[in-house]
C-alpha cells in the first residue's frame, strides 16, 4: 500500500502564499537590476566583436617582459615601506578611536555617538578619494600614499577593534570599577590584555590590505608599484605591465602566507 492510496482523503491544508515582503523584494531586485544594467549600458557584445582587437593586447600580456622586473623591485620596496608606515600609525591611532567607539570603555554617550559618526564618515570614502586629497595637499609621491592609507586604516582598525572590545569578558571591568580604577587604567589593564591578540591580528590584516591597495594608491599618484603600472600602461607597454602584475601576485601571496603564519601564532 502506498501513502497515496488511502481512501477518503481529508481536506489538505492550502499552501501558504509567498509573503508580500518576499515578492516585493524580488520585484525590487529585478527592477533595480534592469535599471542599473540600462544605466551603465551593460552588454557582453564586445566580447565577441572586439575580441580580435583585444587579443593583440592579451597576447602581449601572455608574453611578460621578465627583464623589466629589475626596475620593479625598488617600486616594490617603496610600496612595502608605505604599507609598513601607514599600517603602524593607522592601527595605533585606530586603537585610541576603538576605545572611544565602544560603550564598554567609553562611558560618555555623546562622545561615543560622535566617535561612531566620525568613523562612519571616515570609512565611507574610498581609499582613492584620500589619495586624491593628499596628492592635492602635498603633491604626487609616497607621502600622499602614506597619509591616505593612514586615514583609511584608522577607520578599519577602529571598527574591527571596537567590535572586539564590545565582546570582552566584563568580569575584570567589574573588578576594576569596584576598586575605584579610573577610565584609562581600566581600559589599559582590564580590556587591553584581552583584546591584544585580536588587535595584532587586525594590524597584520590591514598591512595585507595596504599591499593590495598599492595599485590604486600608485595609480592616483601615491607612489610605489601602482605608479609604475600607471606609467607603463599609459605607454602601452603591456609586456611590462604583465610582468609587474605577476610579481604582484607573488608578493601578495608571500605576504599573505607570512601574515597568516604570524596570526595563527597570535590567536
Amino acid at each position: 500500500m502506498t501513502v497515496a492510496a488511502s481512501p477518503a482523503a481529508p481536506a489538505r491544508p492550502r499552501k501558504p502564499r509567498p509573503s508580500r515582503v518576499l515578492i516585493l523584494g524580488l520585484v525590487a531586485v529585478a527592477a533595480t537590476t534592469a535599471w542599473a544594467g540600462w544605466e551603465i549600458g551593460f552588454t557582453l557584445g564586445p566580447l565577441l566583436e572586439n575580441f580580435s582587437n583585444g587579443w593583440v593586447v592579451v597576447e602581449q600580456f601572455l608574453h611578460p617582459n621578465w627583464s623589466y622586473l629589475g626596475n620593479a623591485w625598488t617600486a616594490w620596496l617603496e610600496t612595502i615601506s608605505i604599507a609598513v608606515v601607514a599600517s603602524f600609525f593607522g592601527v595605533a591611532v585606530g586603537l585610541v578611536f576603538a576605545y572611544m567607539a565602544s560603550r564598554v570603555t567609553n562611558r560618555s554617550t555623546p562622545l561615543y555617538r560622535a566617535t561612531k559618526w566620525f568613523l562612519a564618515v571616515l570609512r565611507s570614502l574610498p581609499d582613492v578619494a584620500y589619495v586624491l586629497i593628499f596628492v592635492a595637499l602635498v603633491g604626487v609621491g609616497s607621502l600622499a600614499g602614506i597619509l591616505a592609507l593612514f586615514i583609511f586604516n584608522i577607520g578599519i582598525a577602529a571598527k574591527l577593534t571596537a567590535e572586539t572590545i564590545d565582546a570582552v569578558d566584563q568580569g575584570p571591568l567589574e573588578a576594576a570599577d569596584a576598586s575605584g580604577a579610573g577610565t584609562f587604567a581600566r581600559a589599559r589593564w582590564a580590556v587591553q590584555p584581552q583584546i591584544l591578540p585580536n588587535f595584532l591580528s587586525y594590524a597584520l590584516y590591514i598591512f595585507e590590505l595596504n599591499i593590495r591597495s598599492s595599485v590604486v594608491i600608485g595609480y592616483a599618484g601615491g607612489g610605489g608599484i601602482g605608479q609604475l603600472i600607471q606609467v607603463q600602461f599609459a605607454r602601452f607597454n603591456f609586456e611590462n605591465v604583465s610582468a609587474i602584475v605577476i610579481s604582484m601576485f607573488v608578493v601578495v601571496l608571500l605576504i599573505d602566507q607570512l601574515s597568516q603564519h604570524l596570526r595563527r601564532r597570535l590567536v
Binding site: 575584570p172 576598586s179 582590564a190 590584555p193
Partner: peptide, 18 residues
C-alpha cells in the same frame, strides 16, 4: 574576575590603580 592574559602582578596592581 581576573584578566587571565596578564601576570598576577598586573592583576594585583588593579587594586592600587586608583
Amino acid at each position: 574576575n581576573l584578566v587571565k592574559r596578564t601576570s598576577v602582578m598586573n592583576n594585583v596592581m588593579m587594586g592600587q590603580m586608583h
